[in-house]
Design a binder for these strands. Structure first.
Lengths: 294, 294
DNA sequence: CCTTTTATACTCTTTCTGAGCATAAATAAC
DNA sequence: GTTATTTATGCTCAGAAAGAGTATAAAAGG
């Protein structure tokens, strides 16, 4: 049984969370696990750095699973896929870096249009629920409401994978064997979109208690830029004043004497991350407002 | 390259968190990944259920890594280890079920003796720090304090793996190549103790926001029994009244008309989990007091 | 000068959390 | 049979944190 490494490589460019793709955006970069790698983590790092020529920051394992993509292949030939999430700094944009919201448009709760999209999806899901056996009705209906909101439920930005799986079961994404008419959003080969969903969910969870957004920022940055970065990753708008309060009280960043070049309003101070705090394990947690404003 | 499944199978028996081991407690159960398994998760479940004859409850993947144990083996033969955490209900105890605190005595912060043990470990670690290059002193000293407490730092029950790794680096566990005189605690073959540490940490984290302790309880139980279960898993005593408040306000459990047979004090009401709440995904979170009392 | 936009400071209310006090209902000790 | 001890349970209170609003500062554009 052969094994492959597969990477969800994320950067934030132009206030957009982007992921590195191959093959016209249809797949995530993947490479064979080579025996010269001293460890998986290391192999992953080396391999991505060679392929992309960029330095990797934070890196973590996502999930390992048996590839279900290739049908008709003798089972012994099935591949193990070991997926990783890796963060890097924005570099010259290219075709291969695509907004992850191209694949999950409903996850971008900052665009006004999304509300309509989610309403449409919810409608279709509810009609799908109608086709199920009666015992399942209530269960699945609660699931739809919990995942896609409505009925007073708030949108939980972490349930990326669960939402994708629900759409899959309902035959509303191209990857599903039941699919007739997919919901908007690019699909990917095999399990890749599922892996991407896992990566997004993991990053959104992580950013709540670890200052991994550090990886995405320039050397110096304004608080608004920091907030926008976190917002586009979470796909949720945040209360500016509270965001600042939380960042401030964590001692993660410090002022520089400089100001950002102004375009419109009052010029913003430039900040930088405090090196001592970023260093390995120093920061026990970086809390962010957990319930986002709308 | 062949692959192995490896399980951290946990149950709570007699107010002790136990893990299933093999070979006189020196290794975790592991088996080859067979091609008939439809998915890894499924393969894991089938395999453990066959081996142990018990039904598995919650199951989740821990980590995948390349086995570093076997030296002198051609690198292509290296095995991929895919580790899982699985929870099950206590059954007739046996030799093979061992308290996880046999392997990590310092993690049991509920025993009075542990305080002395941790003090000893801290001393030895500090003297190890003394042998390092000067630039490293402060960094590593902070690490020791953060992981093993002292200096006003509180004990973080989730840092099981980090503590083990520190001891490993300092040559204070048998598994380490530098080891001369190990700290108390049973060791295991290969990476198994590290995997166990990962499992414990994951479970301690999970139990904070998901009611996975459900798996460990009988059909009905008292609140004290529930609290003791959580406490021994976390290795930390909790404030009883606050524990009850949190459990109560989450609507996870309901009273039964019965009382537990008394031994000493006032008889305790028996409770049961509300089936509807436990069902898949219903419960979004089960919060527990995060900072434990001493 | 006035409006708009962005940045930043401060306040207020509600909820959550840690911690303690008090009472209830049983057994054990005298 | 009192009294002490143990376990279970109810309630209160102070401080911290979170959500949300008001106010002010500093720029550009008309």
């Amino acid at each position: 049984m052969s094994s492959q490494l597969i990477a969800v490589l994320v950067a934030v460019q132009n206030d957009t969370p982007k992921v590195l793709t191959l093959g016209a955006g249809r797949s995530l970069p993947a490479g064979p696990l080579e025996s010269r790698h001293r460890s998986l983590q290391n192999g992953m790092r080396l391999w991505v750095e060679q392929q992309t020529g960029r330095r990797l920051g934070h890196i973590e394992q996502l999930y390992t699973f048996a590839d279900t993509q290739v049908l008709g292949v003798p089972e012994l030939e099935r591949s193990l896929l070991i997926s990783y999430l890796a963060l890097t700094h924005a570099d010259p944009p290219s075709e291969n870096w695509r907004s992850w919201y191209e694949y999950f448009p409903w996850e971008d709760q900052m665009r006004a249009q999304t509300q309509r999209l989610v309403a449409d999806i919810t409608l279709r899901l509810k009609s799908w629920v109608g086709t199920l056996a009666a015992e399942e009705h209530e269960r699945q209906l609660r699931r739809v409401v919990r995942l896609f909101g409505g009925d007073g439920e708030v949108w939980d930005d972490q349930l990326v994978l669960q939402r994708y799986e629900l759409l899959w079961e309902a035959g509303m994404v191209t990857e599903s064997p039941l699919c007739e008419e997919p919901v908007v959003g690019m699909s990917m080969d095999g399990d890749h979109r599922r892996i991407l969903a896992t990566g997004i969910a993991r990053l959104r969870a992580k950013i709540r208690y670890r200052p991994v957004f550090y990886e995405f920022m320039d050397e110096t940055f304004t608080l608004s830029a920091l907030q926008r970065t976190v917002e586009v990753v979470a796909g949720q708008a945040m209360h500016t004043q509270n965001f600042r309060r939380l960042i401030a009280q964590q001692n993660l960043i410090e002022e520089t004497p400089d100001y950002a070049p102004v375009s419109r309003g009052r010029p913003a101070k430039l900040f930088r991350f405090r090196r001592e705090m970023i260093e390995e394990g120093q920061i026990m947690g970086s809390k962010l407002p957990i319930v986002f404003s709308r």
